Every structure is written in structure tokens, then in C-alpha cells.
Simulated scan of single mutants.
Amino acid sequence: MKKTLPASQPADLPASSESRQGERSKASSNKASSNKAPSSKASAKKPSSFYMKQMRAGLSAAGYVKHETWVLPENRSVLKHIEKKLRQPLIGSAPVLENDMIAGENWTIDRLFSALQALDEVTSNEIGLSLIQGAEPSIKLEMHDFGGLPIYIAVVGEQIIVDTVLVDLESINDVARFNDAVLRSREMFPLSSIGIESMPNGQTVYNMFGALSASSNLTNVVTEVKTLVDNVQRATEAFESFFN
């Protein structure tokens, strides 16, 4: 009797050349699909409005408020300068716009003295203020809430130096150990350093001081003074065992 093959080809028989070609085409198509570049939507650059929104959110989170202002076109640059000033906190009644200070101009000792006179702490006599004339004029502040602690400010070239005497050499009971402790205290007193200086009368003292640019705004100058006062208190407590 003549046998006939089933209608469907057994799975273990080799595929026809047409079938193999179709499978290769399908595999190539799948590989090409997997290597496609990311969609234009995923790789598109963010618009400028996105970054502006981020900036406004950051300013709002920092506590700033938006205020619309109308000015002449030629005054836009002036307004931007004033805006930066108004983002700084007021200290007492200090003139935040610093009318006696041109942007980018260095302070002179006379202009700085006049600006400091407007502070609430000075007008209420919490801080005594005097101008010391001499070969190198300086400003003396007496911190009445801290026992009259004297702080001196000098404008030296491109810098403003704020300093005070921490202790005189004769008052140290172990100079070597004290010097070692001072050299290891760099991180204890932010914005301030300690150095040795010979006074005009021949006395050797340890000064605590800070320095900032002579073009710094008034807020930063006052912050430097207050930071120095805080650091003097901390240094006195930290090094108390070295003092006679």
C-alpha cells in the first residue's frame, strides 16, 4: 500500500531555505529596532523657561518675594545692582544701598567711618565708634555689651583688616604649648586667624583678625566684626588654661 506523508512537516526536518531567510530577516529587524536612538522626546533639551522656573522656586524657598518695578531703559543695569543689594539683610538702619559707595570702588577709611555711624548699634551707643588719625588711620569700635572690647578696622590697600588683641605674650604660662594649640585651631574660628605682632611700645601680643576685600559691602564688613567678637569669646574659653 502506498504511504502518504502528513500534511504538516515534522519539527525535526530542516527548514526550507525560504523559511531560514525569513527568520534571518526578522532577527535583523529586531536587532535594528533595539539599536534605535532614544526618542526625540527623551533626549530633547529643556527650554529656558524650565531653568527660570527653577530659579524662581529657589529664590522663593530662600525667602525672597517678587516685586514688579518700572524704570527707564537706561536704568536697567542700576536696578540689577540695587536688586543684589536688597537681597542682603539689613543690619540696624545701615543704608543697604550704600549711597556713599560706588559699585566696585574700594572703601576709604573716612567713607567707611561715615557708613558705620548709621548703624543702630552705634546710634544707641551699644557700640562706641571713633576715628583714630595717624600715619595709618583706623576705626575703633568699643563693644559695650562685651565689656568694652576694642575692635580696630583699617583699610590697607585692597583689603579691610578687622582685628583685636587676644592676649599679650607675658600673660601666657607656656608659650610653646600655646603656640602649638593655636596652630591646631584653624577650624575652630571661622573667618578669623591668630598671629603675633610687636606693638609700638615694644610689647608682643597675639592678635585675632579677619580680612576681606576693600570693595566689600557694608553688611559683610559688619558681619566680619561680629564674627570676630564671637571668635574672641570662643578663643578665650578654649585657651583659658594657658592664661596666667
Results as ranks from 00 to 15, higher is better:
142 E>N: 14
156 V>A: 09
149 L>S: 12
121 E>A: 03
173 N>K: 15
127 I>M: 01
222 V>F: 07
179 N>K: 10
196 I>R: 15
117 Q>E: 01
199 M>W: 10
128 G>T: 03
140 K>H: 04
208 M>R: 02
118 A>V: 07
115 A>G: 06
174 D>T: 14
200 P>A: 10
122 V>C: 00
207 N>D: 06
141 L>G: 06
130 S>F: 02
145 D>R: 01
102 I>A: 05
121 E>Y: 01
89 P>T: 03
127 I>H: 05
135 A>G: 06
106 N>T: 11
104 G>D: 05
127 I>Q: 00
118 A>P: 02
96 V>C: 07
128 G>W: 03
176 A>Q: 15
206 Y>F: 15
188 M>H: 09
171 S>C: 09
165 V>F: 07
149 L>R: 12
162 V>W: 08
153 I>V: 07
174 D>F: 08
143 M>A: 06
136 E>S: 05
98 E>M: 01
98 E>F: 00
96 V>W: 01
137 P>M: 10
139 I>D: 10
107 W>V: 00
129 L>M: 11
147 G>W: 04
107 W>N: 01
195 G>E: 14
193 S>T: 15
218 L>F: 02
216 S>V: 05
133 Q>E: 12
163 D>K: 12
171 S>H: 08
131 L>M: 05
169 L>Q: 12
149 L>Y: 04
217 N>F: 01
190 P>C: 13
147 G>Q: 12
126 E>C: 05
166 L>T: 08
152 Y>E: 09
161 I>R: 10
210 G>Y: 07
100 D>T: 00
213 S>P: 08
214 A>V: 13
206 Y>N: 02
214 A>M: 12
111 R>M: 12
173 N>Q: 11
147 G>V: 06
220 N>R: 00
204 T>Q: 14
120 D>S: 04
89 P>K: 03
151 I>Y: 03
217 N>P: 12
195 G>T: 15
123 T>Q: 12
166 L>Q: 06
131 L>R: 15
201 N>Q: 11
199 M>R: 14
195 G>S: 10
215 S>A: 15
207 N>F: 06
201 N>I: 14
139 I>T: 04
168 D>S: 14
188 M>L: 14
118 A>Q: 14
192 S>D: 11
151 I>N: 04
114 S>R: 02
145 D>A: 03
132 I>P: 07
109 I>A: 06
123 T>W: 07
165 V>D: 13
102 I>R: 00
96 V>E: 08
201 N>V: 14
150 P>Y: 04
159 Q>F: 11
90 L>H: 03
100 D>H: 10
100 D>S: 13
147 G>N: 13
115 A>C: 02
97 L>A: 08
114 S>E: 02
192 S>A: 14
109 I>K: 04
159 Q>D: 15
129 L>K: 01
166 L>W: 04
173 N>R: 15
148 G>R: 10
93 S>N: 13
144 H>K: 12
149 L>D: 02
182 V>H: 12
221 V>I: 08
145 D>I: 08
109 I>F: 13
101 M>R: 09
204 T>R: 09
213 S>F: 08
214 A>I: 03
122 V>F: 00
188 M>Y: 11
